[in-house]
Amino acid sequence: GVTLFVALYDYEARTEDDLSFHKGEKFQILNSSEGDWWEARSLTTGETGYIPSNYVAPVDS
């Protein structure tokens, strides 16, 4: 299955590639091989962008 991640904090995008999000928003991670910045798709907005990996945690299934 796909592991979903949930935002622990609000984040405001600093570049066009970043994804702004709110605490509690859920994400599907598309690429986590880039280190501290993961490519993710928000399940709330459907938008794709980079998120700071230390702002999210796995959702307990």
Rank of each mutant, 00 (worst) to 15 (best):
T44Q: 12
K23A: 09
S53D: 04
R14L: 06
V6A: 14
V56F: 15
G1Q: 12
N31R: 07
T44A: 12
A40L: 00
D36G: 04
E16D: 13
D36N: 12
G24V: 00
D18W: 14
D10R: 03
K23V: 06
A57H: 07
A13Y: 02
N31H: 01
P58V: 09
D10Q: 05
P52Q: 11
D60G: 05
Y11R: 08
P52S: 12
A7M: 00
Q28L: 09
E12R: 13
W38C: 14
R14I: 10
T3G: 07
A57I: 08
Y55A: 15
T3E: 12
E39N: 02
T3W: 02
V59Q: 08
D17P: 10
A57N: 08
W38L: 13
L8T: 15
G46Y: 09
N31Q: 04
L8P: 01
I51Y: 01
G49H: 01
S53T: 11
P52V: 02
N54R: 13
E25C: 08
G46L: 11
A7G: 04
I51D: 00
S32R: 12
E12N: 12
F5V: 05
A7D: 00
V56Q: 00
I29S: 03
E47A: 08
P52K: 14
I29R: 13
L30K: 04
W37V: 13
A7P: 00
L19N: 01
L30H: 03
N31V: 08
Q28T: 14
T15M: 10
I29A: 06
N54W: 06
A7R: 01
V6S: 08
T45A: 04
S20N: 10
K26L: 04
Y9A: 15
L4M: 15
F27W: 01
E12A: 12
W38G: 01
A13W: 02
S61G: 07
G35R: 11
G24N: 04
E34G: 09
Y55H: 09
S20C: 07
S61Y: 07
F27L: 11
S32I: 06
Y9E: 13
S42Y: 02
Y9C: 06
R14H: 14
D10E: 04
A7V: 01
T45V: 02
E25I: 02
H22W: 06
S53A: 14
T48W: 06
S20P: 07
G24I: 01
A13F: 02
A40M: 05
E34Q: 11
G1R: 12
N31L: 03
S33M: 11
L19D: 00
F5P: 00
